[in-house]
Amino acid sequence: MKCELCHANNAETVLYRRNAEGKREELYVCHACAERERAFEEERGIQITAMRLNGGAKPAPPEEPRKGADEAEDAPPADEAGEPRMMSAAEFFGEDEEPRKGTDEAEDAPPADEAGEPRMMSAAEFFGEDEEPPEDPSAREFLGLHAGTPDDACTRCPGCGATIGDIRHEGLFRCPQCLTTFPELTRTLLDDAQQCSDYQGDPAPGTERLREIEALERRLAEAIDREDYLEAKRLRAEIQAKKGEAGHDA
């Protein structure tokens, strides 16, 4: 094929450069054009790489511009407050369950300040240095979640500053504490999305024993209710034995 810059010589090398929009572009060019282009680009401080055609070494691809290096500070938070990019599977969920990213939220969402501007954490908070949760995952549960405290329209989530309105509007929780702060809403959202708000999946590693004990305690209560004391006695012993295994898998 012919060189894509002079259209006269045969293409001898591949040239990578950034076009006007900053997009990476691949050109097949002759050596002379490659040289000229390289000198020109270097003058402008742009990195370009070239490779030889026909069995030359693979070019080192020019470094992808650091996404957000420039956006990081000046992009308005509202812009990012769109949708957490879950997985490309996120598109799965119909409109009712998940607002389409960006578009309407960006405009409809109240200004970041009002919405309880996502507070910047201190470095310590950020890395969780002083709030190291205990190792046993069961100890990190959100106590009171099922206590049924009524949700309050004025309450802000202590973890992220979101109000019940924010979460309802977006259909997304902004932080794990949102779930404890608004237990009613949590149950509603889960019932809508999952037709279930009581987890029956795989227990987290280290919580199997606690789960088993819970199940046994339920059966114990049932046994006592129907005055089956023999069974109750047996279950109580089993629970004691299970509790005795403490630390085994915690």
Binding site: P84, P176, L189
Partner: peptide, 27 residues
């Protein structure tokens, strides 16, 4: 699951693994 401890995933016994999206909550 092997990463659950070192990375400290958010987990609740009543809700399972907690995510921003209600439709992904649980497993």
């Amino acid at each position: 699951d092997g990463l659950a401890k070192p990375l400290r995933f958010v987990y609740d016994r009543r809700l399972g693994y907690v995510t921003a999206q209600p439709a992904l909550m649980g497993t």
